[in-house]
């Protein structure tokens, strides 16, 4: 279940943590968060902190509220017409309600469950966000695109065909393209919403590698249906069930000796 190579990487990265921390260690502070969609109570009294430069894994059966939780962090839930919330979510001491959604989403990027390339060329996909934030200089855009693609480990595979349609790439490549696209706008936090659900094991490994390395610069929140993936890459793991946060602890502790019976049952595959 636990991959020794990756664990070494984690150990290395743990040393980096102190040096590169941007904020005071707490990126998101969430207090008594309740979310409703119409009459459905999707999240119930969730309170937690997300630390800077950590990978926080969120696991739980489907409709447990983990994706709602993720989409809260960049206010993507606001797009649903009957969305209501109570409680407070702070990004480095600023309530995210008071941050303009555009700027919040620039700081908090997102990679979706399916590789959703935009109907543009590979280059334009990565450059899209940067262009939308007003960068017009071609040289600057080119540098940014190259840098982001390298960071997502895709550059070598696409450098000769940047003008081709993004839809010509394989699923795994498209997902790394989506990561590059998110990196290009220089976010502080990256939200991954089941990023490997449609990928084969090799592509999955590449995306996981990318995440572990990205942790040095970014804070990562990973929602996953794959319990083993959470065990492999996340530093801390949160277990959601029926909209409640059941348990949040260091990944080793969650997977070796969870305090709650329900957590234990879920990671052993007894339900969900």
């Amino acid at each position: 279940m636990v991959n020794p190579v990756r664990n070494n990487k984690l150990a290395e990265n743990a040393k980096m943590k102190d040096k590169n921390t941007i904020s005071n260690g707490v990126k998101f502070a969430i207090k008594n968060l309740d979310i409703w969609f119409g009459t459905i109570h999707a999240l119930k009294q969730v309170s937690m902190e997300i630390e800077a430069n950590e990978i926080l894994g969120a696991i739980g059966p489907s409709s447990s509220g983990k994706t709602t939780f993720l989409r809260m962090l960049n206010r993507l839930n606001d797009l649903s017409p009957n969305f209501r919330m109570n409680g407070e979510v702070k990004l480095e001491n600023d309530n995210i309600k008071n941050i303009d959604a555009q700027f919040l989403r620039k700081r908090v990027g997102m990679v979706f469950a399916l590789p959703l390339s935009l109907p543009l060329s590979i280059f334009d996909n990565v450059a899209y966000g940067v262009k939308m934030h007003g960068v017009k200089n071609k040289k600057l855009l080119q540098n940014k695109v190259e840098e982001s693609l390298k960071e997502a480990y895709l550059w070598d595979e696409v450098k000769d065909r940047l003008n081709e349609s993004a839809f010509k790439l394989s699923g795994g490549q498209q997902q790394r393209l989506c990561i590059a696209r998110t990196l290009a706008v220089s976010p502080e936090v990256i939200l991954f919403d089941e990023p490997c659900s449609g990928l084969d094991p090799i592509s999955t490994a590449k995306v996981e590698d990318a995440m572990v390395k990205l942790k040095q610069k970014y804070t990562i929140v990973l929602v996953t249906n794959n319990v083993k993936q959470a065990a492999r890459v996340s530093d801390r793991t949160a277990f959601f069930l029926n909209g409640e946060l059941i348990e949040l602890d260091k990944t080793e502790l969650i997977f070796t000796g969870p305090k709650d019976k329900r957590t234990d049952g879920y990671i052993r595959g007894k339900f969900g």
Partner: peptide, 16 residues
């Protein structure tokens, strides 16, 4: 709808 979500999630405004 997913195209809209992707664009918004990159910090583009609604009009953009």
């Amino acid at each position: 709808q997913s195209f809209r979500e992707v664009s918004l999630s990159l910090g583009a405004s609604k009009w953009q």
